[in-house]
């Protein structure tokens, strides 16, 4: 598809250009819905479509009142605060446990490697509604199964901050495992041996030699885990209570019950966040490839 040869027939030319048009339309389908809500969020009216003033580019048709609403409304502020309280802690939990496990998994002789991998990846595969159902049942009445029957634990995790964090950490772990193991595939183990040879203990080796090299993978896994928690609504709907209402939850109820244009303002802010995340992940990926390219294989 690299350019049209000069000898192309009219039919080939027609196909070449119509194919490009089709692709353009599909790209439009992918991106337009996201782009369209950005101007709509500046609507001065409480409508969800372009008003005549907006189409005429009349400044009176635009306003930032939906943004003001977002930053002053206590419901939205509480939701934002909850999201910012839950996602980082869940991310920290999944990144720290996930990185350790990924390092363990990438060693050469791991018994039951496939089975362990399958279990660790499963939160990504199991539909969210099923995870949410199971967590709702189990977290509301946790128990330790023994051959002699259940030992019921005297506390409940549903409706608590801890419960939501645990659930979100579990959902984020597959992403950390996948990205970190992918980074470790190219890791040269003679580096750790060299470090050990020069008298570094396992902890020093990990933090001074291994960690800097796999850091891009760890960070991008962390970003995936963060966005999973930050964007997650099904599990928090089931496991959380009104006190753990997150931003997506508030958007969900907003869309279902009283649809207000403030949602569009929130959506625009989240789009900006995702653009930033996209670029960070892309930069990290390139950096990781460069780092791995540097180490002799």
């Amino acid at each position: 598809m690299s350019g049209l040869p000069p000898y192309a027939t009219t039919g080939q030319r027609a196909w070449y250009y119509s194919f490009r048009v089709i692709c353009g339309l599909i790209f439009f389908f992918l991106i337009a819905p996201i782009i369209v809500i950005i101007p709509l969020s500046f609507n001065a009216q409480d409508f969800f479509t372009f008003t005549p003033e907006m189409l005429a580019f009349d400044p009176a048709g635009y306003s930032t009142k939906h943004y003001e609403d977002f930053f002053t409304n206590s419901d939205w502020q509480l939701a934002l605060k909850n999201s910012l309280k839950i996602a980082p802690v869940a991310t920290l939990l999944s990144v720290s446990l996930g990185t350790l496990a990924a390092i363990g998994l990438s060693q050469s002789h791991v018994p039951f490697r496939r089975a362990i991998m399958a279990i660790l990846i499963s939160p990504m595969i199991v539909p969210l509604i099923i995870s949410a159902t199971g967590m709702y049942f189990f977290y509301s009445n946790p128990y330790i199964p023994t051959p002699f029957g259940k030992i019921e634990l005297p506390f409940t995790l549903t409706g608590t901050y801890l419960g939501v964090v645990l659930a979100h950490a579990a959902l984020g772990i597959p992403f950390v495992i996948i990205t970190v193991t992918a980074t470790l595939v190219g890791f040269d183990n003679s580096l750790t041996r060299a470090a050990a040879n020069m008298g570094a203990g396992p902890v020093t080796t990990f933090f001074r030699v291994q960690m800097p090299l796999i850091l891009p993978g760890v960070v991008s896994g962390g970003l995936f885990a963060f966005i999973t928690s930050f964007d997650e609504v099904v599990v928090v709907l089931f496991v959380g209570s009104a006190g753990q209402k997150t931003l997506p939850w508030q958007m969900f109820t907003g869309l279902r019950e009283q649809i207000s244009p403030t949602i569009l303002a929130v959506a625009t802010i989240l789009i900006a966040v995702s653009i930033v995340l996209l670029f960070v992940v892309e930069l990290l990926r390139r950096r990781s490839e460069r780092l791995r390219g540097m180490s002799p294989s």
Binding site: A101, G104, L105, H109, L120, M135, A167, A169
Partner: peptide, 21 residues
Amino acid sequence: RALALIAPLLIFILVSFVMPI
């Protein structure tokens, strides 16, 4: 050693995810 590195996460996933399922 490999298993010891994996164990914390495996236990975490078993408790927070596999048991609920």
